[in-house]
C-alpha cells in the first residue's frame, strides 16, 4: 500500500459506486436518483482508468470515454423523461410513479 497502485483506484471506485447505489436505493427524488446514477457511472470510469494506468494500456481510457459519451446520452434522455413526467404527473417523487405496474 505504500506505492500507488490500481488497488487504490479500485477502492475509490468501490466507495463511489456504493455511495451512488445507496443513493439510488434510498432517495425519493427522481433528480437525485439521476445524479446518483451519474456518480455510479463515474465510479466505473475510475476503475477503468486505474487499470489502464497500472498496465500501461490505452484501452481503459477508450472505454472510459465511451462511458462518458453514454452517460451524456443518458443524461439527455433521462432529463427529458423527467421533464415529461413532471408535465404529466406533476411530481418528481418516484413513489408516486406507479405506471410501470399497468
Amino acid at each position: 500500500m505504500s506505492e500507488l497502485s490500481a488497488t487504490h483506484f479500485l477502492l475509490l471506485s468501490a466507495a463511489l459506486f456504493i455511495i451512488g447505489m445507496v443513493g439510488v436505493l434510498t432517495r425519493r427524488n427522481v433528480l437525485v436518483i439521476f445524479m446518483c446514477i451519474e456518480l455510479m457511472l463515474n465510479a466505473v470510469n475510475v476503475s477503468l482508468i486505474g487499470f489502464a494506468w497500472e498496465l500501461h494500456q490505452l484501452t481503459g481510457q477508450v472505454f472510459a470515454l465511451f462511458v462518458i459519451a453514454i452517460a451524456a446520452a443518458e443524461a439527455v434522455v433521462g432529463l427529458g423523461i423527467v421533464m415529461a413526467l413532471t408535465r404529466r404527473a406533476d411530481t418528481v417523487d418516484i413513489d408516486e410513479l406507479r405506471q410501470l405496474r399497468e
Partner: peptide, 9 residues
C-alpha cells in the same frame, strides 16, 4: 471526492 458523493446522497 467521497465527501462530495456523500453530500449528493
Amino acid at each position: 471526492s467521497i465527501l462530495g458523493a456523500l453530500g449528493v446522497v
